Deep mutational scan, measured.
Amino acid sequence: LSCHYCHSLFSGKPEVLDWQDQVFQFCCRDCCEDFKRLR
C-alpha cells in the first residue's frame, strides 16, 4: 500500500479516513491529520 499523503509504501495497518464519500489510506496518524488540515 502507499500513503495518500506522503506516497511512501507501508505494509502495516493503515490509518483510514472516510471523507466526502471517498476512503483514503495513510501510513500514520500524522499524515492523516496533515491531510485533514489541508482540506
Rank of each mutant, 00 (worst) to 15 (best):
L17M: 10
L17R: 03
L1K: 09
L9I: 03
R37S: 12
S2I: 15
Q20K: 15
L1Q: 01
L38K: 11
K36I: 03
C28A: 10
C27K: 00
F35K: 02
R37V: 12
C28Y: 02
V16R: 09
F24S: 03
P14L: 02
F10D: 01
P14I: 04
G12P: 04
S2H: 14
L17P: 04
Q20D: 15
L9V: 09
C27Y: 01
Y5T: 09
W19C: 14
D18N: 12
L9C: 05
K36F: 06
C6R: 00
D30Q: 08
R29C: 11
D21P: 05
Q25Y: 10
Q22L: 11
R39K: 05
H4C: 14
C28S: 08
H4W: 11
F26P: 01
H4Q: 11
C28D: 10
V16K: 06
K36V: 09
L38C: 12
K13Y: 03
C28R: 11
Q22E: 15
C27T: 01
C32E: 04
C27W: 00
C31S: 00
D34N: 09
W19L: 15
R37C: 03
F35Y: 05
D34K: 09
E33Q: 08
E33D: 11
Q25F: 08
C28Q: 11
V23T: 13
L9W: 06
L38R: 11
F10V: 08
S11T: 05
D30R: 10
L9P: 12
K36G: 08
H7W: 05
D30W: 04
F26V: 02
F26M: 12
F24R: 10
C6E: 01
F35T: 02
D34A: 11
F35G: 03
C31P: 00
K36M: 14
Q25V: 10
R37K: 03
L9F: 07
S8L: 10
C3I: 00
F10M: 10
L38G: 13
F26E: 02
V16T: 08
D18S: 10
E15T: 11
L1P: 02
S2E: 13
L9H: 11
E15R: 04
Y5L: 11
K36T: 09
S8V: 15
K36N: 04
D34T: 05
L1I: 15
S8Q: 15
P14E: 04
S2R: 12
L17G: 06
G12Q: 09
R37G: 08
F26R: 02
R29W: 08
L38I: 11
L9M: 06
D34F: 05
P14V: 04
L1G: 08
P14C: 02
H7T: 12
V23W: 12
E33V: 07
S11I: 03
E15A: 07
W19I: 14
K36Y: 02
R39Q: 15
V16N: 08
Q22V: 15
G12W: 04
R37W: 07
F35E: 05
F35N: 00
P14N: 05
Q25K: 12
C32T: 06
C31R: 00
S8K: 15
C31D: 02
E15N: 09
S8N: 15
C27E: 01
V23S: 14
R29D: 11
H7N: 12
D21R: 07
C27P: 02
P14R: 02
D21T: 09
C32A: 08
D18W: 07
L9G: 12
Y5F: 12
S8W: 09
L9D: 07
F35H: 04
C3L: 00
S11L: 03
V16F: 04
C3M: 02
R29G: 09
P14H: 04
H7Q: 06
D34L: 07
F35V: 02
H4K: 13
H7A: 13
C6M: 03
E33H: 12
K13G: 05
K36L: 06
R37M: 06
C31H: 14
C32G: 04
D30E: 09
D30V: 12
F35S: 03
D34M: 13
S8M: 15
Q22R: 13
Y5C: 09
F10L: 08
E15G: 02
H7V: 05
D18K: 08
C31L: 00
K36H: 06
R29H: 14
S11R: 03
E15K: 02
C31E: 02
Q22S: 14
C3K: 01
D30G: 10
F26Y: 03
C32Q: 07
Q22I: 07
D21H: 05
C28L: 01
C3S: 00
K13N: 05
D21F: 06
C3W: 00
Q20V: 10
V23E: 14
S8R: 15
Q22Y: 12
E33P: 01
Q25D: 11
Q20N: 15
D30I: 04
C3P: 00
W19P: 13
C31I: 00
Q20C: 12
F10E: 01
D18I: 08
F10Y: 05
H4F: 12
E33R: 05
F10S: 03
P14W: 02
V16Y: 08
Q22T: 13
E15M: 13
D18F: 06
W19G: 12
E33M: 12
F35P: 01
L38A: 07
Y5I: 07
R37Q: 14
Y5E: 07
L1Y: 10
L9S: 09
D34W: 06
C3Q: 00
K36E: 09
L17Y: 04
